[in-house]
Amino acid sequence: GETKIIYHLDGQETPYLVKLPLPAERVTLADFKGVLQRPSYKFFFKSMDDDFGVVKEEISDDNAKLPCFNGRVVSWLVSA
């Protein structure tokens, strides 16, 4: 499998796309960081919350699996 991750960088209009050679349910924050090489950023991901619906959730645990929608991951990188 392959996972497409779209990421928005510090408010830039056009998002970036990276592809990881892993199925979406196995991709972790560490996998994503390894491709990006951007150490001083906070990582937020499109996520579903039972109370609020669609939210941007910050993930900082490198072992955390990334939230996935239709085989895609959507993220926002914010300068720390």
Rank of each mutant, 00 (worst) to 15 (best):
G1C: 11
G1K: 14
E2A: 06
E2F: 09
E2Q: 10
T3Q: 00
T3G: 01
I5N: 00
I5R: 02
I5Y: 00
I5F: 01
I5T: 07
I5M: 01
I6C: 07
Y7P: 01
H8E: 00
H8F: 15
L9D: 06
L9Q: 01
D10M: 01
D10W: 01
D10R: 03
D10G: 03
G11E: 11
G11N: 13
Q12W: 05
E13V: 07
E13H: 07
E13I: 10
E13S: 11
E13T: 11
E13N: 09
T14I: 13
P15Y: 02
Y16G: 06
L17S: 15
L17K: 08
L17I: 15
L17H: 15
V18F: 03
V18N: 08
K19I: 15
K19A: 10
K19M: 13
L20D: 03
L20T: 01
L20N: 03
L20P: 00
L22P: 04
L22H: 04
P23Q: 02
A24E: 07
A24G: 10
E25P: 00
E25S: 11
R26K: 13
R26W: 02
R26A: 13
R26I: 08
V27Q: 01
V27M: 04
V27C: 11
V27D: 00
T28A: 03
T28G: 05
T28S: 02
T28N: 03
L29G: 04
L29C: 09
L29Y: 08
L29M: 03
A30L: 05
A30M: 07
A30E: 01
A30W: 06
D31N: 04
F32G: 00
K33H: 04
K33T: 04
G34K: 14
G34N: 15
G34L: 11
G34C: 10
L36A: 02
L36R: 06
Q37Y: 11
Q37A: 11
Q37E: 13
Q37T: 12
R38F: 10
P39Q: 14
P39F: 00
Y41T: 06
Y41N: 02
Y41K: 02
K42A: 05
K42F: 13
K42M: 04
K42S: 03
F44V: 02
F45L: 02
K46F: 06
S47L: 13
M48H: 13
D49L: 05
D50W: 07
D50V: 10
D51P: 13
D51C: 10
F52W: 09
G53F: 08
G53E: 14
V54C: 13
V54Q: 09
V55C: 14
K56A: 09
E57F: 09
E57V: 15
E58T: 07
E58D: 00
I59D: 00
S60N: 11
D61L: 02
D61T: 00
D62Y: 05
D62H: 00
D62R: 03
D62T: 01
D62W: 00
N63W: 05
N63Y: 08
N63H: 11
A64P: 04
A64T: 07
A64I: 07
K65N: 10
L66K: 04
L66W: 05
L66Q: 06
P67E: 07
P67R: 06
P67V: 02
C68P: 02
C68M: 09
F69K: 10
N70T: 07
N70C: 07
G71R: 01
G71W: 06
G71T: 00
R72Q: 15
R72N: 13
R72Y: 15
R72P: 00
V73E: 02
V73T: 08
V74K: 00
S75H: 05
S75M: 02
W76K: 03
L77A: 00
V78K: 11
V78C: 11
V78G: 05
S79R: 09
A80K: 14
